[in-house]
């Protein structure tokens, strides 16, 4: 399974996704996965301090970011989320 790259030969990397134009007023839909014990607590504290964050960010609390699985991220992308923020 060890693959030895030929010296001087670089594999061309193709993106699975088709490139497309981004409208100027487009804003990404971000899903944040936050650990209950640190990042989510920080978000909570930010709320107590009346700090605001953009409405295009949604937070999901996890017992630990170790709980975050590939498939949770993929499901989010399938449902139209543009970016994932994992904080823990």
């Amino acid at each position: 399974m060890v693959k030895v790259a030929e010296p001087g030969v670089q594999e061309e990397v193709h993106s699975i996704e088709k490139p497309h134009e981004t409208p100027p007023d487009w804003e990404p839909n971000i899903l944040a996965f936050a650990c209950h014990y640190c990042a989510f607590a920080a978000a909570d504290l930010a709320g107590v301090m009346r700090l605001s964050y953009p409405s295009n960010v949604k937070i999901i609390r996890l017992p630990c970011t170790g709980k975050l699985d590939y498939i949770h991220i993929l499901h989010a992308f399938e449902r139209g989320v543009d970016g994932i923020f994992a904080a823990g």
């Binding site: 699975i16 590939y70 498939i71 992308f77 399938e78």
Partner: peptide, 17 residues
Amino acid sequence: GKEAEILASLIRMKAIQ
């Protein structure tokens, strides 16, 4: 099973695109 689930998700996204 995990890899099959991931692959199925990737195929669904590709089909939508």
